[in-house]
Design a protein around this nucleic acid. Sequence first.
DNA 1: GTATTTATTTCAGTACCCGAAAAAATAATT
DNA 2: AATTATTTTTTCGGGTACTGAAATAAATAC
Lengths: 412, 412
Amino acid sequence: MARGVADTEMIRRTNRERVLDVIRREGPMSRTRIANLTGLSNASLSAIGADLVAQGILSEVEDTQQENKGRGRPAIGLGHNRAAAYVILIELDVNRCRLSMLDYGGILVDRVETPLMPDQFHARRPDDYLLERIETMAQRNEAEMERLGAVALSVQGMLGPMRRGLKWSPIPDLAGVDLLGPIATTYGVPTHLYKRGHLMADGTRWLHPALAHATYATIFIGATVGMGLSFPSEGPLPADIGTEFGHMNHMPDGALCRCGAHGCIEAYAADYGILRAAYSVPEHTTPANAVPPGDFQQIIARARAGDRNAIHAFNNAGRALGFGINRLMSVVEISHIVLLGPGTAAFDLMRPALEDATLASLSGRINGVPQIILTADAGEPIYRGLMMKALTALDHDHFAPMTGTAARSIAE
Amino acid sequence: MARGVADTEMIRRTNRERVLDVIRREGPMSRTRIANLTGLSNASLSAIGADLVAQGILSEVEDTQQENKGRGRPAIGLGHNRAAAYVILIELDVNRCRLSMLDYGGILVDRVETPLMPDQFHARRPDDYLLERIETMAQRNEAEMERLGAVALSVQGMLGPMRRGLKWSPIPDLAGVDLLGPIATTYGVPTHLYKRGHLMADGTRWLHPALAHATYATIFIGATVGMGLSFPSEGPLPADIGTEFGHMNHMPDGALCRCGAHGCIEAYAADYGILRAAYSVPEHTTPANAVPPGDFQQIIARARAGDRNAIHAFNNAGRALGFGINRLMSVVEISHIVLLGPGTAAFDLMRPALEDATLASLSGRINGVPQIILTADAGEPIYRGLMMKALTALDHDHFAPMTGTAARSIAE
DNA sequence: GTATTTATTTCAGTACCCGAAAAAATAATT
DNA sequence: AATTATTTTTTCGGGTACTGAAATAAATAC
């Protein structure tokens, strides 16, 4: 009983979702073009378009992507009505918390950013902190708050049972708290919690057309190692996939990781692991808290200059990542790997070991090394993924189900 | 454009699928009960039931699961019309090939089984061999072949690009051949290729009610090590998930595996790996071709009697499986693990090392060891999974889309 | 034999889709 | 300037499958 019985109500909802989706993906366009892309008839688009405009969900704009601008009746563009709703996106990272308010068209309205200390949530409850941040944003945008449609939160860690908080997080004292509940009750809007790694993967699909129909993994290399998987099929993922790649074991009883376990990939391939190896610090030494970007650049420079220890450190990192990919490919068949984050600056130093390790398995031998794509900036995919999740959730859950008949009778 | 536009045709198809599914799951039942379980109205069930009976897809039977057998009009059971179609299931394993013919109700009609030699496909093309086996079955059941609806094939290995053959298989000379094409053209019916590990996982859900809503992995331990994943959500999996767990790397440069790679889980946990370790044969020795069941039992007996080498062999096997599960859990969050196959007879000997290794990771520490369920017989889940795949494919692709109006006008 | 109970069917109403034809709005041609 | 061609959008008539309510069917209980 996945979505209730199939009846005319579900026809309407499904087709309205398709219309909103195609505009979300490709921007405002004419009714005719929407009809062609969705497979609906022109007659249906006339009706659906009229409904959505009457309900204030879409609005008529100039058609930005006219293909036929010769003679004939000019097309009227149909785009999201930007004032229909507003969403607040919260990116809660290890060292900063950034709130963005967007309109229904995805345009940034306001932004508030604050640095985060490692002991931030030691004395202060994280749910209170988030409420206070949202309140700051609310006071600066009172008019928009009237039409707040959703609050979406990006976090790092393992999601808790009801997806309302985290079971574990690299941010100290964040796990075990219901992050969404207080927001939902205070503002009375739907709230969503997403894994940063998952958003990174999804956002990359929006930004990289070559990946449109691929199954791929995104791997973040920096202060931590994180992964996300993205599948071309529509619909939500069946389960929590792409959980904690950075803490996948690479070597039994291996190097000490920040999470407290031994032999995680992160303990070899995150900046602190590379730093430790490059300076020949014993593997079981407690990891550094934070590695300044300058220090990391220096190790790269030393490796490029031929320093044996630095080269060895990057080799080990590539090997750990490669065996991780090797093991990942024994579970999910992927065609591409997207590498993101500051660690990609040293990819050339890791590549040989990474490829060797990837090939050292049956699936590597049969399928070859997946195509590797480098992107230094991880922030953009995450923001884009979070924005798209929040806005399409609004499209599907709030706007698509509104009944059209009511609107038409009002219009008469 | 996942499934075409939503219109009345898709309503009919979806609802007919729901009806066929619920009967497939729970057996023949009254229209009223079907209406309750599917959420459809009694009026709709009257219409849908009449259509499906008129088209010969369902037939009226005695209601086997009457709940109210007091007074009132007695319920009429609605069950699959067994003569509506027949399917041939082919289980192609390392050492045997078994064909089963089933009617549309899932009842076995005929069965043909032949042993398979390791060099079976050296001189003979596997597609020809399959055609010949099907022809044998066809000659014994000429009447049923008139209504053949599908041929479904269970294989071991990595599926090829179009799911018509294998990229790799533990059965020699099987990969790289289009197995389905010749069957489809000869008999003019839909053909399907499924991974044995995947069927094992799916079939287990049908057989084990406790797993109904769980996300779990099934791991086969025997002459090989294979895995399948099963998710509670409906619909097909987004990608090839659960590819080749047995050949996931456990130890870089570790023990030699049958596949030619070093350090696969299989090289430690399959019967030949345990045998090799128990007799202190060097890890890099070429694996034995087949291990007689008696030999394996003997090693178990020796381990139970306290033999150090045998105990060590099972320890290593448990450790390899445990780290495999550990790594798997870093990619997919699972709540249960079902162990199947002859190797489960020695599970008590592997358990401590398996659990230690599972716990030695972040996800193990946070989520604990997944609940472990033992089932010695792997054949039954595979057969059940294959049968359900073949029959529900017939339900969805062939019978649900038939138009109802035509049938009703014939009936008048 | 009548009342009660339960299952199924019939009927009238509704929502949404589609194809075809009509209307609207522009550019090109005469 | 009027007409023609072209393209977009709307209108109209027809069709299908759903639903709730009422009617019918087929048994048991009294």
